[in-house]
Every structure is written in C-alpha cells, then in structure tokens.
C-alpha cells in the first residue's frame, strides 16, 4: 500500500513538474512504427533514418535530445500543446499541416506509391481505382490525395502503417497507399513478396508537399532557423550522405531524385 502511494506521489509530481523546460534539452517526437525511418527493435530502442538524422542535427546544434515515440494522430496536437519541441517522423510538408505548424526545409523526398497484389491488374487512374478499397494511415497526407484525385475510391483508415500492410497481406483490402520507400522496404521483405507497386510514384506537391520536414511550433521561429541551418550543414558536409547510405541504395536528398 505504502508503495502504491509512493508511486502515486511520484506520478503526480511527474505530471506537474516534468514539463518545466530545462535549458537546451530538446524533446523530439517520432512514431516508432515506420521502418526503416523509425522503428523499435527487440531491446526497446527506437532506431532508423529519422532517428539518425535527428541525432546528427542535435549534435550539430550542440543540444541534448530526448527522442520518444508517440501515436501518429497525436503528433500535431501534441506539438501544439507543447508535449515536445519538434517532430522528426517522416512527416510530409503539406499546405494543410502548414496551417498548424512550421516546417524546416525538406530532409528527404520520397513520394507515394499504391501497392497491390502482383496477380491483380490495377490501373492507378480514377476509373481503375473506382470502388477499390485502399488502406491509408489515419491523419496521413495520402488520404487527402486519394480523396481529391480518386473520388470513387473507398478509403480505409488505420492507426498505423504496419496495420494496413498486415491487412493488405491478408487480402482484406485491394491496395495500400503509403510513402514509397517505406513500401519498398516492405515489398522487398518476405511478407510483401507477392505484392508490387502499381503505376508511377506520386509526387503531387499539392498534397504530399515537397518532401518530409521537421515540424516545429509556429511560435518557435528561432528554433526553426537553427534546425534549418543545421540541416543545411549536415546535407553539405557529408554527414547526411553517410546516414543515407546506411539505409538506402540511392540518395534521398531533396532535389536529387527520379
């Protein structure tokens, strides 16, 4: 009993005091379910391209960083509410999100694809996708794109990307629309062997934006400038390329694609 009161007291203290901003510890949010960009391994460590970029940026800015995982649909509300200072979670820079947050320059450009079974002919045109059930992550930019460009498509929303892949593999849905490299990694895996990317990749900046950026609260303009400067540095001094090569065979650096 005594112990549970102790726990209670600690919890209340933590709830009330944890937030007080310590000098120069940045709290960074990521998702943890988006390999190879961010994922959790068996030891509970969050890893991936996003994490390496975030750590490189923090080293460049000479600040301490605490990277934690949060649910995807809680990212923007969490940033606005002040739960953390930056989102480094492969978040596409979109017009709609820019109403809520500021973004740094893009740190990678991936585009989107629709993946479907190899055995099925699927035209990625409004007619070809009419009536088809396509899975996307809730609160993702792909849902917006589908809604606008393929109005006859039935959209099914998932909490996590891994879940729509499970459902695609199970045959519950006709296809999945997601980020190109994330999907490529899955298509190359054992689970995704019977599936392929259909048609051309999507690069509609109107919906997908110019790439993935780091989201910062509107009020933190100074922090935004520092992140931007640090990004420019690591993209020119070779640090970025080195991280890139750890995960991908080709460069993700914005402006060097296709």
């Amino acid at each position: 009993m005594k112990n549970s009161f102790k726990i209670l007291a600690v919890a209340i203290a933590a709830a009330l005091a944890a937030g007080s901003a310590h000098a120069e510890t940045l709290r960074i949010a990521t998702e943890g379910t988006y390999p190879p960009f961010n994922f959790v391994d068996a030891s509970g460590q969050v890893q991936g391209f996003d994490i390496d970029v975030a750590n490189a940026l923090c080293a460049e800015m000479k600040v301490e960083c605490k990277i934690e995982t949060f649910s995807w649909d809680g990212m923007i509300p969490g940033l606005n509410a002040g739960k953390f200072d930056a989102i480094v979670a492969s978040m596409s820079i979109t017009e709609k999100r820019k109403e809520a947050e500021n973004f740094t320059q893009p740190y990678y450009q991936a585009g989107a694809v629709i993946a479907a079974p190899r055995s099925v002919e699927l035209e990625t045109t409004p007619e070809g996708l009419a009536g088809k059930v396509i899975g996307v992550q809730r609160a993702s930019s792909y849902g917006q794109l589908l809604k606008a460009k393929f109005p006859e498509t039935k959209i099914r929303e998932y909490d996590k990307n891994e879940e729509h892949n499970l459902d695609l593999a199970a045959g519950r849905i006709d296809g999945v629309m997601a980020q190109r490299l994330f999907m490529q990694q899955w298509l190359d895996s054992e689970e995704g062997a019977d599936f392929e990317a259909k048609g051309k990749a999507f690069f509609d900046t109107e919906y997908l934006g110019p790439g993935a950026g780091i989201a910062i609260r509107k009020s933190d303009t100074e922090l935004l400038a520092r992140f931007d400067a640090a990004l420019s540095t690591i993209m020119s001094n070779g640090v970025y390329d080195e991280i890139n090569d750890r995960y991908f065979k080709f460069s993700l650096k914005p402006g060097q694609q296709q």
Partner: peptide, 9 residues
Amino acid sequence: EFIDVSAFA
C-alpha cells in the same frame, strides 16, 4: 512554465 501531460498522466 509549461506543464506537460504525458500519455502516462
């Protein structure tokens, strides 16, 4: 100062 309400809280 900012007060955080974590998923835990």
